[in-house]
Nucleic acid binder design. Structure first.
Length: 824
RNA sequence: GCGGCCGUGGCGGAACUGGUAGACGCGCCAGCCUUAGGAGCUGGUGGGGUUUCCCCGUGUGGGUUCGAGUCCCUCCGGCCGCACCA
């Protein structure tokens, strides 16, 4: 094996890649000058969780796609910063450590080391000088600092709340981590409810802005839509129903226009007023129902197919519109977490209320008459908006939409309502009763209450703990370490205790992109000047599985830091693109299915460049594709062909190439540039292949293959365009074409339109919309001439015959359509 | 149930704002070269037919249009998200 990376003149990926990995490291090719960069471009990829299994194909697909983008931008003249880090805290790591009976503090560094090796092997343009690891005290010190900023801003609050509890993880989960009522990590385990005192971030305060900004963010539509749905804005009204004794019960409704049809009210079983309202004869029944509801796990409770149940409280209240008395019930189809935890029930115009009213014999009063009174719309419940109010006093005859404001304003005059907007988004519970995370920096003192840890005392180090196993208690393992949690109160110096919960991993990842540029600074979370220079992130590419978790939290944290004056950007990611998923045999890869593709074997067999290019070629990047290894040889054959062309070329030649090959070159420059820019990597690669086929055909025509007939000037742009996809390979070719500097320090080839123009084009001739012939004509032919020539063509005359041409359609440089015959 | 995405050769997939369907690649077939080749090269490859030409063809059925893979409606199938959100 020779130094130049070739063996007997053949392409030897292993040698080439080894050589360029070393060269890049020595020359610091991939290190960005974060302080001095003139044209900064922040190219971000989602940092991985360093699992024990190592990188899988999905990771490689994601990273390579992002890397191609970063390298492309660099060739376009940007100073690209492409950092990486490790999301190493969290339940994933901890559970795995428990399984293999190791300590995460021991396991994680090993995993990270393995990941580093694998990432380097992939030929990513990563700047290793700015690596972060969330488990590093130098990092989580600032995670804790961010908590304190939110605390001081009143955005971190302690609430006792129904939380999702996974009996398997033995911890609380965020709503976002509950899938179909099951734990996201334990699909077989039902999540139950617990009432615990937890720390919450008040993300709901930001719901409106998080939603509004989605309108202008340059993000994948699918991601924006998922966030929009997750935030779940509903316009309606908050109405007040009063009991005899004057107690006000507030309800949220999107249909205040139907208030005249509210024939009963339903409170959530957890509603704080239930106790005081319930009459003595109903008390036993109500208490029994509440106990039952509390014991019911969240799935059964939430699944809509369950038959509705409920019980009367015996109490009544007044419908503010009709003045009539209506009964108050409790039922578990009303959720405490949404709206006010109470509803006015309008059975005639709501399916759930209808079902409930039918079952319990409650009054159903129609107050909206459908105006499009056709088919089934006359049946109750009618939930549409195309109706007129009836039995609604002075509002009779009014349209639903109009009535929403009219009725609400009328009630407002009686202090019984106002227009209101509700969001589906819940506050973010960040408390985790686990070990492997950053301790929440709070101290509880009997005298002073909740005392935040002073910033000067950060970080609150996670203590070494041999037995970090979680238990049923709902209390973190850290609570077993008295030595650690017993501390003097920072304010009064009396005995106090630390918060023993740690924070959610999603808090770590909600700000890691702010840290990257500033990793050299230990006295601040992120440097103001560097942050202004690099944020917002220019391009963020990642999986849509994080559309509502990570991406929402990161936006929220950035927005808060912006409001507090720490970050200039309000939004962290100017552009986000969701990549697709790689499936195997049509199914998602998973350990249980046993269809996980491990990238290492392919990289070892084919080389990183071939593997990278294959992944980018197998389908549209933003849609993903099916991994089947048969196709990989096609990429290798392609690289071998390029290798052959480059090997035969005369470095430094001044020969330009034929007009035809120049034309093909510039057409390729145009196409590949546009495709790469829009992440259409598969078609970009196909255009490169096409160009290589043209060059080879030309070489074959001009003489013997291998005679160096293809001018270097036609190959250099090819090598540059190939570089984002196959970086080691391109560097080697670039060097063999006589260049000393890195191919990545050159420029993307300039497109010249005049050179790309075809002189002759093929004009399609249709008769009545069917293709009947093709004509070679010069580009830019006039409409009149095109039609004349089409009519003159023999093949066309057969179809036109003696019929009159009724109409002609001309698409410049494309086709002529002659419409003949018919009745006119 | 609601919302979104998607159905194109044997396979992965092309087709810009409606304008030559099947680019590019895999596989397959034939030929060349070779002691040999799961190597390389050349050509072919949607289906059918009366084979210098014609017919059919982008999940189904309709519609708009000179012209529909692309736009509209119906149904079927697959994937993803949300799921009693008032």
């Amino acid at each position: 094996m020779s130094q130049t990376g070739s063996t007997n003149g053949r392409y030897d990926p292993e040698a080439v890649e080894k050589k360029w990995r070393q060269t890049w490291a020595e020359r610091r090719t991939n290190a960005a000058d974060v302080e001095a960069a003139a044209k900064p471009y922040y190219n971000l990829m989602m940092y991985p969780y360093p699992s024990a299994e190592g990188l899988h194909v999905g990771n490689v697909f994601a990273f390579v796609g992002s890397d191609v983008h970063g390298r492309f931008r660099r060739l376009q003249g940007w100073n690209v910063f492409e950092p990486i880090g490790f999301d190493a805290f969290g339940i994933h790591s901890e559970n795995y450590a428990l399984k293999v009976n190791m300590h995460p503090a021991e396991l994680i560094p090993r995993n990270i080391e393995r990941f580093r090796e694998q990432l380097k092997r992939c030929g990513l343009m990563l700047d290793w000088d700015h690596e972060v690891s969330t488990t590093d005290p130098r990092y989580y010190k600032w995670t804790q600092w961010i908590f304190l900023q939110l605390y001081h801003a009143g955005l971190a609050v302690r609430k006792k709340a129904a939380v999702n509890w996974c009996p398997e993880c033995k911890t609380v989960l965020a709503n976002e981590q509950v899938i179909d009522g099951h734990c996201e990590r334990h699909p077989g385990t039902l999540v139950t409810q617990r009432y615990l005192e937890q720390w919450f971030f008040r993300i709901t305060e930001y719901a409106g802005r998080l939603l509004e900004n989605l309108e202008w963010l340059d993000w994948s539509d699918s991601t924006r839509l998922m966030q929009t749905n997750w935030i779940g804005r509903s316009e309606g009204a908050e109405l007040v129903f009063r009991t005899e004794s004057g107690t006000a019960i507030r309800v949220f409704t999107t249909r205040p226009d139907t208030v005249f049809g509210a024939t009963y009210m339903v409170l959530s079983p957890e509603h704080p007023l239930v106790n005081s309202l319930t009459t003595s004869n109903q008390r036993d029944a109500v208490n029994a129902y509440r106990r039952e509801a509390a014991a019911t796990d969240i799935v059964t409770r939430r699944i809509g197919e369950k038959e509705k149940t409920g019980v009367s409280t015996g109490a009544i209240c007044r419908n503010p519109a009709t003045g009539e008395s209506i009964p108050i019930w409790i039922a578990d189809y009303v959720l405490m977490e949404y709206g006010t935890g109470a509803i006015m029930a309008v059975p005639a115009h709501d399916e759930r209320d209808f079902e409930f009213a039918e079952k319990y014999g409650l009054e159903i009063r129609q107050v909206v008459k459908p105006t499009d009174a056709d088919e089934a719309s006359s049946e109750l419940p009618y939930t549409g908006w195309n109706g007129q109010l009836v039995s609604s006093a002075q509002f009779d005859g009014m349209g639903c939409h109009e009535a929403v404001t009219a009725v609400t304003e009328w009630l407002e005059q009686q202090e019984a309502g106002r227009l209101e907007v509700q969001y589906r988004l819940h506050d973010w519970c960040i408390s985790r009763q686990r070990y492997w995370g950053p301790p929440i920096p709070v101290i509880y003192c009997d005298e002073c209450g909740v005392v935040p840890v002073p910033e000067t005392d950060l970080p609150v180090l996670l203590p070494p703990l041999d037995d970090f196993r979680p238990d049923e208690s709902g209390i973190s393992p850290l609570a077993r370490n008295e030595e650690w949690f017993r501390v003097p109160c920072p304010t009064c110096q009396r005995d106090a205790r630390r918060e023993t919960d740690v924070s959610d991993t999603f808090l770590d990842s909600a700000w890691y992109f702010l840290r990257y540029p500033s990793t050299d600074y230990d006295d601040r979370a992120f440097d103001a000047k560097l942050t202004r220079k690099w944020l917002p992130v220019n391009s963020y590419i990642g999986g849509n599985e994080h559309a509502v978790l990570h991406l929402m939290y990161a936006r929220f944290i950035t927005m808060v830091l912006h409001d507090l004056g720490f970050v200039e950007a309000e939004e962290p990611f100017a552009q986000f693109r969701a990549h697709g998923t790689i499936v195997k045999d049509g199914a998602k890869m998973s350990k249980s299915r046993g269809n996980v593709v491990v990238p290492d074997q392919y990289i070892a067999q084919w080389g990183a460049d071939t593997f990278r290019m294959y992944l980018m070629f197998l389908g549209p990047y933003q849609e993903g594709g099916d991994f089947r290894d048969e196709g990989i040889s096609g990429i290798r054959r392609f690289l071998d062909k390029v290798w052959g062309l480059v090997s035969d070329a005369r470095p430094g030649g001044t020969e330009e190439g034929s007009p035809d090959s120049l034309r093909k070159l510039h057409q390729t420059i145009w196409g590949v540039g546009a495709d790469t820019d829009e992440l259409r990597y598969n078609t970009a690669i196909s255009k490169l292949m096409k160009y290589v086929n043209v060059l080879r055909k030309e070489e074959g025509q001009q003489g013997q293959r291998g005679q160096g007939r293809v001018p270097a000037k036609l190959l250099e742009p090819l090598v540059i365009m190939l570089a984002p996809f196959a970086p080691h390979f391109a560097e080697e070719c670039w060097e063999r074409l006589g260049h000393i500097d890195s191919v990545f320090d050159t420029e993307w080839p300039a497109f010249e339109e005049s050179l790309a123009q075809e002189e002759l084009i093929e004009l399609v001739v249709q008769v009545n919309g069917k293709v009947r012939g093709r004509l070679q004509v010069s580009a830019g032919i006039s409409e009149a001439e095109a039609i004349e020539r089409a009519l003159a063509a023999e093949a066309i005359q057969r179809f036109v015959g003696s019929s009159a041409v009724r109409k002609t359609v001309y698409v410049p440089n494309r086709l002529v359509n002659l419409v003949v015959g018919g009745e006119g």
